[in-house]
């Protein structure tokens, strides 16, 4: 991981990656986080990704767009993404700002997120609905 432990951490937990954002990231740090995460999905052959944004006090248009992009890229790489820990005030501001993140799965916290992945990923493997990522 090149972003350094102070800003974000990406931990491997079985076939899942748990990425926590620890502090406000600027745009270029956000983009680097996106690269690191997508790259690690391939390296660890992860089937699920949890992004914990509980520490973020602002998710603006760029932030939510990046989260949406990460989820979409992860999907193309064969992993399901769940965003967890969106604070109530942040949720309010995101709606007021008019950001549509409806296509991204969310859960209240890490525990809910893991439960959600457990329920979905096994099904997905059985169903084999994942598009092979282009190499």
């Amino acid at each position: 991981m090149t972003t350094g432990p102070a800003l974000v951490s990406i931990l491997r937990q079985g076939s899942y990656l748990i990425a926590s954002i620890h502090t406000a990231l600027d745009d270029s740090q956000m983009i680097r986080f996106q690269h690191d995460l997508i790259e690690q999905i391939g390296r660890h052959r992860s089937r699920g990704v949890i992004i914990d944004v509980a520490a973020l006090d602002v998710v603006d248009s760029f932030g939510s767009r990046t989260l949406r992009n990460i989820a979409e890229m992860a999907r193309l790489r064969g992993a399901l993404t769940v965003i967890v820990g969106i604070q109530p005030d942040v949720a309010f501001a995101m709606v007021a700002l008019g950001m549509g993140t409806g296509s991204v799965y969310t859960a209240l916290d890490l525990e809910e997120g893991l439960a959600y992945l457990d329920s979905r990923v096994s099904k997905k493997v059985l169903g084999g609905t994942v598009i092979d990522p282009p190499q």
């Binding site: 006090d57 602002v58 005030d89 942040v90 309010f92 007021a96 700002l97």
Partner: peptide
Amino acid sequence: TDLTVIST
């Protein structure tokens, strides 16, 4: 909430 709205 307003603080978050303002910062956003």
